[in-house]
Design a protein around this nucleic acid. Structure first.
Lengths: 211, 211
DNA sequence: GTCTATAGATTGATAGAC
DNA sequence: GTCTATCAATCTATAGAC
């Protein structure tokens, strides 16, 4: 098996541990031990623990958001050629589905998705803002597109409902990364693909609800 | 001004800091300083930092869940006398609305609501499980009631959609506790009451979406 | 019940040899 | 670039006087 370089090994371990235990709870000692690198290597390569976090986020979030942007553009272009407003469900799918596809693109991507999900409710402003800042451009594109799709929905209502959507999405990503546990008295959880498919149906219906 | 007792002052400060900074990030030193009590008082009254967390949670979550249970029962009884299944929107309202009413019931309750919201994505299993364990009975009542309200919806789909609902709710509670900040290019956020009212519309429509 | 003082462990970060 | 060794600061928890 090919041994990746030190920098990548640190990022892989960080992705895994930040997602599982949270940023603050993860110690650099445990992290470097898992990565099989020296403790001092983190500060050498990333400057600080927070610098490592930013590197871990950017590595996957930048391409993920680019994929979302492309899919949104495709939906918008299709609608433009037909001359009708883009369907809201298609726009939501373009934003949500890449998240799942992305999970299978790399071994550690699944952990990363959980890390995104958690970041929405991250207490630390630094961490949360770093995430939001990276998502904002493509989120703005989604928002503007949905305004065209649902012209009768007031902008502040749409904004609130997109917040609900992000909450549902984040929580789903977060909990689907945990080992599935059957709760007595409740049905077994859906598969990951089934979960995402129904999430899109759920938020589409929610967005189009009368107000 | 009447000075409350040591135990309450500790719990009030903990509620505030756990909600704002998270459980692990909050130090007993900062906490006892804010509460204006001695550092050792926490261990005297609550045994440990985690014991304090459990006390903080139980103090408000037990009465909140009791209120939810009562409201759900009222909806169920009304439906029973009429002889028709309970409306799903009413059931969701009975579960969600008390959360908002509760916020204004005590000075620190607003912080607590944020604490609940965050707990859903809490990495620490101990913390998360303590929350879930306390919510589970009334959540089961909601689940069973909604099965009557929506008999054609498969149980596993309903379960998934309730997860989306909890995610949307948690995220909303969490972010509405933060100081509202206007993001450039986006509309101003709704008021708290408007937000909850639309959340109920959103999740009601989502739950009843075709599958 | 409340206090001071401190134990005991763990943390992020760094200096300096190689 | 990688290592060892260590600093300086933090943390929770506790012992013991009052």
């Amino acid at each position: 098996m090919l041994q990746t370089d030190t920098k990548s090994r640190i990022m892989d371990a960080a992705e895994q541990l930040f997602a599982r235990d949270g940023f603050h709870t993860t110690s650099l000692r445990g992290l470097t031990e898992l990565a099989n690198v020296n403790l001092a290597a983190v500060n050498y390569h990333f400057g600080s623990k927070e610098g490592l976090l930013q590197a871990v986020i950017s590595r996957r979030l930048l391409p993920l958001n680019e994929l979302r942007r492309q899919k949104l553009k495709t939906v918008l272009n299709q609608a433009a050629t037909v001359g009708s407003p883009p369907p809201a469900a298609d726009l939501l799918r373009a934003f949500i589905e890449p998240t799942l596809d992305f999970r299978n693109s790399a071994p550690g991507a699944k952990d990363f998705i959980a890390l995104i999900g958690r970041s929405l409710s991250e207490p630390d402003e630094t961490v949360r803002n770093y995430f939001i800042q990276q998502i904002l451009p493509v989120f703005k594109l989604l928002f503007d597109s949905l305004q065209k799709a649902l012209p009768d929905l007031p902008a502040d209502i749409l904004m609130a409902r997109l917040q609900f959507t992000m909450g549902a999405m984040g929580h789903t990503m977060c909990s689907s990364a945990r080992p599935k546990q059957l709760i007595p008295g409740f049905p077994a959880p859906l598969s990951d693909t089934g979960l995402v498919a129904d999430l899109i149906r759920f938020v589409s219906a929610g967005l189009e609800a009368p107000c």
